[in-house]
Structures are given as C-alpha cells and as structure tokens.
C-alpha cells in the first residue's frame, strides 16, 4: 500500500519544473540599462549619460565675456536664463575651430549646470550598465581626466564622459 506521506512522482516533476521556471525567470530579469547620448566633437565620438543632459540647443549665439579662460567662451541666453558655455574641445585635446556651428548640450549634475559645445548628436541608445567598461589604463591624452568608462558602439570604442569630472575641472 502506497504511503500518503511520500510525494507522488507527478508532484516531484511539477516541483522540479517550477524550480527550473523560477531559475529561468531570475536569468530573464532585464539587466539594468542606462541611456547614453553619443555625439561628435572634433575628430572623435564621445558619450554623455542621457540623464546628465537636459536639452540640446541649436543656433545659440554665444556672448563673449572678456577675461575668461579659453575654455569658457562666454554666455548664452536660454529663455531668459543666462548660462555659461564650456568649450569641451579644450579638455579633449580636439582641434579648435574658428566659428562654432554645432549644438550646445545643457549639462546638469547636482548644483552644476552649464552649456557644453558639441558638434553633432550621433545617436541616443539604451545600453546595459554591464557593458560600460572602465577606461583603459593605457589611455593617455587630454581626455583622460574626463572619462568615466568606455562603451562599444558598432565597431568603435567610445569614451563615456563624466559631467561631474568636467564640473570639478571647471569649478573655481
């Protein structure tokens, strides 16, 4: 006579299937993702975290202010608010151009907010956080101080720039 305390074979199979299902669900939980904005500046492409860029402003007239360092070309009027502008090419080691015809990215991080001159937006993508790799230890050059990581974009490796590091460089 079969014992009622011993689980039935069908019950065991069902339990096993449920365990496997749960394990699969854990694997299937979507990896945390982050939005990044890929843009061109000079000869290279770079990226910002999307959360750190409030908006992009085309055709901005930059009012030059006397006595400022070369990386602070002046001020812009954003719907009545006066904002500073940073020429990030200075820190990236990119060649400076005579007349600026690009976009101003309004960068925001905690108390820091400023326009940043870029040439053009290339793409906006959601990427898994795990695909952001630390900067190469061999990375050299002017941009090194601003890079928080590198990401793969097509066949390219793109430097992800940290607005916080930029703010620390600029803040007087």
């Amino acid at each position: 006579m079969a014992s009622f305390e011993k689980p039935l074979k069908g019950e065991l199979i069902l339990e096993e299937l449920k365990l496997r299902q749960r394990a699969k669900e854990v694997v299937d939980v979507e990896e945390e993702r982050v939005k990044v904005i890929i843009f061109t500046c000079g000869r290279n492409r770079y990226a910002f975290y999307g959360a750190e860029v409030r908006e992009f402003l085309p055709n901005c007239e930059i009012s030059w202010v006397p006595g400022l360092p070369v990386y602070l070309p002046g001020l812009i009027n954003v719907r009545g608010d006066i904002e500073s502008v940073i020429d990030i090419r200075h820190f990236l080691g990119e060649e400076k151009v005579g007349s600026f015809a690009g976009l101003i990215a309004m960068a925001v991080r905690d108390e820091f907010h400023s326009g940043v001159m870029i040439d053009a937006i290339k793409d906006v993508v959601d990427i898994p956080i795990s695909t952001i790799h630390p900067p190469l230890s061999t990375l050299d050059g002017a941009a090194r101080d601003l890079i928080i990581g590198v990401i793969e974009y097509g066949n390219e490796t793109i430097s992800l720039l940290d607005i916080g590091k930029l703010a620390a460089k600029i803040t007087l």
Binding site: V65, G67, L68, P69, L72, L75, D81, I82, E83, S84, E111, F112, H113, S114, I170, T171, L172
Partner: peptide, 13 residues
C-alpha cells in the same frame, strides 16, 4: 541677471 555661479568669481575679478 547675475553671472552663472560657474563664472561669477572670474567675472568679479
């Protein structure tokens, strides 16, 4: 308007 905080110290100089 005031200068943005980022520039104000330099502007005042």
């Amino acid at each position: 308007r005031l200068f943005p905080a980022l520039l104000e110290p330099l502007a005042l100089q």
